[in-house]
Amino acid sequence: MVHSQQRSITILMLPWLAHGHISPFLELAKKLTSKRNFHIFICSTPVNLTSIKPKLSPKYSHCIEFVELHLPHEELPELPPHYHTTNGLPPHLMSSLKRAFDMSSKNFSTILTTLKPDLLIYDFLQPWAPSLASLQNIPSVEFITTNSALTSFCVHHLKNPSAKFPFPSIYIRDYEAQKLNNLLESSSNGIKDRDRIQQCSDLSSDIILVKTSREIEAKYVDYLSGLMGKKIVPVGPLVQEPMDLKVDEETWIMK
């Protein structure tokens, strides 16, 4: 009997340039490849990939690959390659990093053309990524790396700033609300972060992935779904596997 080999489904992931975003994307990649016949490419800047590579154990090396995204630096001399990450980035350069990320869209389009993935999974600040994927008939899904309680609170504030959040156990003081508003109003390339966030959720294909579980955050998951007009798919807490435990799986017996 001849068994036909099933083609791997390829997924390209593009997280925001922060470790708190790249790490959940990597853990999601591990989870997906352990359950399905997926081949996943994680795209980020060289400085970020250098720090994340040690977190990938050899058992995933055949199904998870890293792809370098080069940000322009000659046009932005204040942002050399070692600053192409939020890790250690001086706060006054955050706007420049967002601008450089936007300016890398042409390079990212080339990556899309070269890899021709079946799906793009992207983060919350780069609406140009799903737009470019759509031009190549590649479906896109947003992945939110914060929990549903925090995300629903922020989206509620974004959409209904004068209305009270329906779950009173979560609240912020007036000065904290001002700080949140300042963050949402911050802009680069003439685009406010609040607009980037909205566009990213609008461009997601029917569903949005969130790092949470219904067992813990069901009411926030449902409220977030209503706010965004999309089905929210919890992907679990995505806890990193310990790298220092070397267990021979063939001889490990659970009784």
Rank of each mutant, 00 (worst) to 15 (best):
S152V: 07
P91I: 07
L180G: 06
V210G: 01
H157D: 09
K116V: 14
D222T: 09
T114R: 14
I138S: 05
D123A: 12
L183R: 13
S8I: 00
F143P: 02
R99E: 13
N182K: 14
N107Y: 06
N160M: 10
P237K: 12
K179S: 15
A129F: 07
D123W: 07
I64E: 01
H39S: 11
M1V: 11
E68M: 04
N37P: 04
H3F: 13
S201I: 15
A18T: 11
Y171G: 13
S104I: 12
Y83I: 08
P81N: 08
P139I: 05
P242T: 07
D118E: 09
H82C: 09
V235N: 00
I40Y: 01
S186G: 11
W16Q: 10
L203Q: 14
C200D: 09
S4R: 14
S44W: 02
R214P: 00
Y122S: 13
L245G: 01
P77A: 01
L180K: 02
H62L: 08
F124C: 13
S162A: 14
A177F: 03
M243D: 12
I216Y: 12
H19V: 07
S34M: 14
H84F: 06
F38A: 08
P161R: 03
D102V: 10
G236A: 00
I121M: 05
E215M: 09
K230P: 05
N48L: 05
D206E: 15
